[in-house]
């Protein structure tokens, strides 16, 4: 059984460490906030200018001046702070954020990431994704292993325009998790979803990796 969206988020949450400052992308990465282990201190950063994102507000308590990077209403915590966009990206680009968890369209075996543009389709923009992968110390990508057509999204080389070159440290798909100690290393298969075999992953993967 491949991992579900929530199981993927729970698996990605195991990359968190106590004391980390973390930026979560839109989609499945946002769900990771639900799986922060009790007792672990993790501070979530939002690139529109907030450290310490709290839970969604109770109905009727939404504040139009308090949103996350996905433009969703959120709340503050006692430790929260607000700052400008330039300060926010100084934090991101300057290497002060420990971990980013992002979605992707393609990841290559050399760590290249594509997650912002499909030529010929409507282009919405890269938002803060290029800055995050350029500056955050560790980048975890969460995505489905294959496209709707069954093609591997973990490939020898990315076909889509890149978000960053050699920026992915850990890749978690619905079938398996791959990781590497440094950006000079190759990815290694480190975990299989329940009931998924190494052979199945090999068959469905375009990238070369270690086992």
């Amino acid at each position: 059984m491949p991992w579900s969206r929530d199981e993927l988020a729970a698996r990605a949450a195991r990359e968190l460490q106590d004391g980390f400052y973390v930026n979560l992308g839109i989609g499945i990465p946002t769900l990771v906030a639900n799986y922060i282990p009790p007792g672990m201190k993790v501070v979530l950063q939002s690139e529109n200018g907030m450290l310490g994102i709290g839970p969604f507000p109770f109905e009727g308590e939404e504040d139009p001046d308090l949103v996350n990077a996905g433009k969703q209403t959120v709340t503050a915590l006692p430790m929260s702070s607000y700052f400008s966009s330039a300060d926010s990206f100084a934090m991101i680009r300057g290497g002060h954020i420990n971990l980013a968890i992002l979605g992707a369209m393609e990841v290559a075996e050399n760590g290249d990431l594509a997650n912002w543009m499909v030529p010929g389709k409507v282009v919405k923009g890269m938002g803060g994704a290029m800055d995050l992968v350029a500056g955050v110390k560790r980048v975890v990508v969460v995505m489905e292993h294959t496209s709707k057509d069954g093609e591997s999204k973990f490939k020898a080389r990315c076909d889509l325009p890149l978000t960053g070159t050699n920026v992915v440290d850990t890749l978690i798909t619905d079938l398996a998790a791959f990781s590497r100690a440094t950006r000079k290393d190759a990815f290694r298969l480190v975990e299989l979803a329940p009931g998924v075999t190494a052979e199945e992953v090999r068959r469905k993967t375009g990238a070369n990796y270690l086992e």
């Binding site: 690139e47 966009s85 990206f89 890269m126 803060g128 290029m130």
Partner: peptide, 10 residues
């Protein structure tokens, strides 16, 4: 013209 958000801010 698309700019990465942090590049735009900077």
């Amino acid at each position: 013209e698309f700019n990465p958000q942090g590049t735009l801010a900077e």
